[in-house]
Design a protein around this nucleic acid. Structure first.
Length: 570
RNA sequence: GGACCUGUGGUGCAGCUCGGAGUGCACGCCGCCCUGUCAAGGCGGAGGUCGCGGGUUCAAAUCCCGUCAGGUCCGCCA
């Protein structure tokens, strides 16, 4: 139907007779003798000159056959890639008539997202979504090539899997052939890929869809895509090298610049200095420890195991209302309160200032090299609370928009094996129960489990957790000790993970792996705050699809076939 | 489960504090004019359940309560 794309024609093509197909982006009519038609296909725009009237509606699909011509002197358009040429002597064939679109396709108009989702097929015609999806395709290809080059074999794993009650809530699929029984959609191919290792696949990868029935966020959809990989006879360092290669290749393809190698930070340092396990290294603002200064304080608000402080450059300008909001936020995420100190040339401006000793005031005024005009925030609490709250405030107050600043990658290593204690007094797995403990900490596994580090590692980019991985346990004795620490009895372990543990009895190679979110990676490459902008057909925050209307009721007949009966219809 | 923000012709906004006739702007749409425009231009026109329900009031887009939808966040996401 066509022999050219709109924006691939150049002045070199002048004189050629060509056919192009696309959508009517704009029309400009000048009476009965002249009209202009801007034709759009995925490559861009091309102007066609119509000598006569033009009877096509915007967004109709047309085929234009014409002669490529240089534009007359003085009529070139520098804003258009094809602005020095145009099609003349045109024949316009209308292939499909369009109604007026539900919102303008002009990218300069910001359109309500609900409308964009309802009419996604129209929104896809606008530039930014289309660009993001093409960027995503290039990233996918770079990832595949990197994995292939490193000796990995792409293997597909089932979407219909067995329930493994642990971790994220699973999507459930009723079985027609086995009424009353259910498949679940995998939260990740975790167990499948470990079985591939036992099966001798050696190095596996997959661009895998993962499904989790948890509440949605700007960076979380029910279904998301990971580069999932696993390798045998490798160390943590090997896996980090594999992943770095893939991510850096993708970054180079996406941005044109290859980032330097990715630095490493321990989890303990990340929490201490940045108050989070996913530090955003694009800006400084590290947490300062003031505990020694306040060790013997008479100020009750500061009598706590840990006092940490954060300097906010130029933060003294924040209004009292804003400070109240920040205090409210700090409480919301677990702090008892938030102390603030405006640094002025005359000393501290704060409701607490008059209760501080001279040494205490001096320490606060000196936090992180504070100068007049800055603000110092402080939290006194248990160590982990102080870190977490100030870490969140650091991001709230300092973090640049996603589209700004450099891309700062970071490996975070030596995660704790366990975090927190459940109602039964057992520790809880921080990663998953097949994660190998740090060998140096194996002797305190029973005596002091919360101190045990794991061989788990995260990849972080600009404060977003891209993904995580670990060295897996391949020794039965270590696995039993972990299950015991987690309060999982042999029977329970057998019923939940029996097929995996059984497989491990038939010769399991030492193996390790990783998985990272492609939606998030591409969103950051695209400068988007929201992964919906890099997904063709995303869901709303309440999990609905405004285009298809999903989720929907199914017919009584379908229910009967599945032997299901609705208890309630909400 | 919870907090907050948003909802006004097809689209994007203003109007809301301090209640007084559906008032305004820009785009789009329809008609007419226009031979080099490119976010074309000129003239004219149509188009509204102010998300929905209730309350207060002589009077509600505006104040109050509830509810729905979209978004951001907390919880949740081994």
């Amino acid at each position: 139907m066509r022999d050219s794309l709109c924006a691939t024609l150049t002045s070199d093509d002048v004189g050629r007779r060509v056919s192009v197909c696309g959508w009517v982006a704009r029309r400009r009519e000048h009476g009965e003798h002249l009209a202009f038609l801007d034709l759009r296909d995925y490559s861009g725009l091309l102007q066609a000159v119509i000598e006569g009237t033009l009877d096509v509606r915007p967004e109709s699909v047309v085929r234009v056959t014409g002669t490529v011509a240089a534009r007359p002197e003085g009529t070139r358009n520098d804003h258009l890639a094809t602005g020095s040429i145009e099609l003349t002597d045109c024949a316009v064939e209308v292939l499909s008539v369009a109604e007026t679109p539900p919102f303008p396709l002009d990218e300069r108009v910001e359109v309500d997202e609900a409308l964009r989702l309802r009419w996604r097929f129209v929104d896809l015609r606008r530039g930014s979504l289309a660009r993001n999806l093409r960027l995503r395709a290039r990233v996918n290809r770079a990832l595949r090539e990197a994995m292939d080059a490193q000796g990995f074999c792409e293997v597909e794993t089932p979407l219909l899997w067995a329930p493994t009650p642990e971790g994220a809530r699973e999507f459930v699929v009723p079985s027609r052939l086995h009424p009353g029984d259910f498949y679940v959609l995998p939260q990740s191919p975790q167990i499948a890929k470990q079985l591939l290792m036992v099966g001798g696949m050696d190095r596996y990868y997959q661009i895998a869809r993962c499904l989790r029935d948890e509440d949605l966020r700007a960076d979380r959809q029910f279904e998301f895509t990971q580069l999932d990989l696993e390798a045998s006879f490798v160390t943590q360092e090997d896996v980090m090298r594999f992943v770095s290669r893939a991510v850096l290749d993708a970054a180079e393809v996406a941005t044109g610049v290859r980032p330097a190698s990715i630095p490493t930070m321990t989890w303990a340092e990340a929490r201490d200095r940045y108050g989070t396990d996913k530090p955003d290294l694009r800006f400084a603002m590290t947490l300062q420890d003031l505990s020694p200064v306040f060790a013997t304080t008479s100020l009750r608000a500061f009598a706590a195991p840990t006092v940490k402080a954060l300097r906010v450059p130029d933060g003294a300008a924040l209004t009292r209302h804003r400070l109240d909001q920040l205090t409210e936020y700090a409480r919301e995420i677990g702090a008892k309160g938030l102390a603030w100190f405006r640094i002025t040339a005359d000393g501290l401006d704060s409701p607490l200032a008059r209760f501080l000793t001279e040494a205490e005031s001096a320490a606060i005024a000196a936090v992180d090299g504070a100068v007049p005009g800055d603000l110092v925030l402080a939290v006194a609490d248990e160590y982990d609370v102080a870190c977490r709250v100030l870490g969140a405030l650091r991001v709230t107050l300092g973090s640049p928009p996603v589209s700004e600043g450099p891309h700062r990658y970071l490996w975070v290593t030596e995660f704790p094996m366990f975090e927190g204690i459940d109602e039964d007094g057992n520790v809880m797995a921080a990663h998953h129960p097949f994660t190998m403990p740090h060998l140096d900490d194996l002797d305190v596994l029973e005596s002091d489990p919360l101190r045990v580090r794991s061989q788990a590692y995260d990849l972080v980019l600009n404060g977003w957790e891209l993904g995580s991985g670990s060295v897996r346990i391949h020794r039965a004795d270590v696995q039993s000790r972990i299950f015991r620490a987690l309060g999982i009895s042999d029977d329970v372990a057998e019923s939940r993970f029996g097929f995996l543990l059984g497989a491990f009895r038939y010769g399991a190679p030492p193996h390790a792996g990783f998985a990272f979110g492609i939606d998030r990676l591409v969103a950051i490459f695209a400068g988007e705050e929201n992964i919906r902008e890099v997904i063709a057909f995303p869901k709303t925050q309440s999990g609905t699809d405004l285009m298809t209307g999903a989720p929907k009721a199914i017919t009584v007949r379908q229910l009967r076939e599945l032997r299901l009966a609705p208890l309630v219809k909400g």
